[in-house]
Design a protein around this nucleic acid. Structure first.
Lengths: 196, 196, 196, 196
DNA sequence: TATGAATGAGATTTCATTCAT
DNA sequence: CATGAATGAAATCTCATTCAT
């Protein structure tokens, strides 16, 4: 798996050679198939657990948030995004990303050709569902309609921002600072962009 | 080239098979090599001209803009982004994108494995240079420093937004509307995000 | 194809090695795939044309025979198998078998693992349809029912007898003599065995 | 062995995978080699005992029959095949076949690639020896010569009929009925076919 | 311009078998 | 009696590329 990680990071899923991975690991190619079903299974063994964990974190978080905005007078106080504690959430996410740095680099930028090649889109879809719920709540409150394209785009942008982060900044602490700035930027324009 | 476009769009650069392209075109593989040096050359013949043209459009536009903000009292009037006529520019860009739809899909999402796989980053770098100049001018004016990370991220976001557009919306007119919304969103937060 | 025939005959479809076939032919394995889609395609190119031709011969013959037994008073004269000119038919079949000796050895005894592995059963089914028509005609005439198991078995026996022939006797002339004896044997007991 | 039987039945000897057999049995491949020397040994352990028993039954039976026809005036009474009690013999054979159904399916139709792939021919040879003795006795009596090809073919047909039975009819009782019909068919034409 | 043929390297995968523990 | 790990050879197939004609 260590050799696989190295090769996949270097060449990407498709161009990675199982022969080279096994040679690097000091075993024959046959040996690989004792542990893994095929190339994709090896890739998955390296990259999937952190992805699963991420999805879990997201779902847990969103479950709580959806609960919060579902309270009768949740939106009376003012701005919607004050309801949700983003700061701690972002820290947790970033910590998870940087604690599994290689896996996420693999998933987010080196998975073309594997079944994970669309995992970014799947993440976006997952997150979008939450923001959709939130936006519709807001929309109902203000008598406005949700612009689905803008919602999708904004969600994509958020996800892309995380990808941008781990592909450009290897320092976790700085990453958290930047992400806070980014989220501030995004959330300030949110309402105007998504509701119409 | 038509067959190549089809195959590359369908399978991506790496998984595309020259054999299949030639079979589809009704010629033998040998014939291909009379016209193109190799696989990459074929891909380039299909996709590069619109890219070159795009870079040209960008450079022309930015040259004018940089000129504008270089005037002694350019920034006196107020907001920086009022200096540049974004609307017409965006229309021109979008028109170019949609006029060469397949080529840009190829370049921006199907080029992994070819020498164009980093063309997005190169575009970002090109554009970033302009926004850097603009930001530094602004920074000097307000006595603020440019945050290079945020600048890079914002530029990336702009480019990603165009990619998002052509991968999600096939109608050019709507695309222009969305992009206007998007640029409004971005430019409003710009100064606060990039200067510090 | 010559090398393929040799290897397939020697080892059977499954154990035949494309590497060895190509080595024997003095080309690399890749070259094979210029001419044939895959292993099965090579096997088919060698063995299928004679099979197709055989099926054609059978269908033509049976069409004529079915016509004959459909005549109003076809069975008045006595024995059913006198209606059909077996002798010439058998000669033609045997001539076809021995004119494509290798192909039929391949098809009938060396095709396990390929899509031709059931071609014997398919032949039996084809032939059985004719004998079923004939038997039912007879059955109606004599007020007897057709025993489907015995019919199937007898048909199988006929086909197996041809296989037995080409796997045991390489001389075409003798083969024809034996087959005449065999058919006499079979046809004499036919009615009693199949009708009940 | 149970798992092996399943896999061999499903895939045939060659395509059967020891890995899958062991996985199905819930043991590792290594474990298999504690009990069996190799793949063939496993196959043999499953399929050989019923085959050995069959050969024994055949030999016993034929020994008795050969004895009978060796009596000075054995053939005076008339037809040769009345000498031997076929009915009970056939019942015994069929009972043995159906009592070891899987093993015989394996041996007779799924053994290609193993050392049992020619077991049908070996059975035929064994049986043929007896029928040869019988035929020669008869031939001497009637002053006729034995046609070896026809003898071999008829023997083959008998064996093939048993194979046909167990591959087409799973009900033992019906199988016995059919086989009686078949043997009647064969024995009636026997003398004419084999002697000349 | 194009064909037809071939190369040679490489890919992933499967397999029966071995063996120290 | 069984495991876990590995071997090493072989399998089929795919590919971009070359080149004489």
């Amino acid at each position: 798996m260590e050799s696989g990680k190295k090769e996949f990071l270097e060449k990407g899923y498709m161009k990675a050679s199982l022969r080279k991975i096994c040679a690097d690991a000091g075993v024959t190619t046959g040996a690989l198939y004792f542990f893994f079903k095929d190339k994709e299974d090896l890739f998955g063994a390296i990259a999937e657990p952190p992805l699963k964990k991420l999805v879990e974190i997201l779902n847990n978080h969103f479950a709580v948030d959806v609960e919060a905005i579902s309270q009768p007078h949740a939106l009376d106080g003012g701005n919607a995004h004050e309801l949700v504690d983003h700061d701690e959430f972002i820290d947790r996410l970033i910590h998870h990303f940087y604690g599994n740095y290689d896996a996420f680099i693999l998933l987010l930028t080196k998975s073309q050709g594997s079944k994970y090649e669309n995992c970014v889109d799947e993440l976006v879809d997952t997150i979008e569902q939450f923001y959709l719920a939130l936006s519709e709540k807001l929309g109902a409150h203000y008598g406005a309609k949700v612009n689905r394209y803008m919602l999708h785009w904004l969600t994509h942008m958020i996800v892309d921002s995380f990808i941008h982060l781990i592909t450009h900044e290897i320092n976790e602490e700085k990453a958290a600072q930047y992400m806070t700035k980014i989220m501030t930027f995004i959330l300030e324009g949110w309402q105007k962009a998504v509701l119409e």
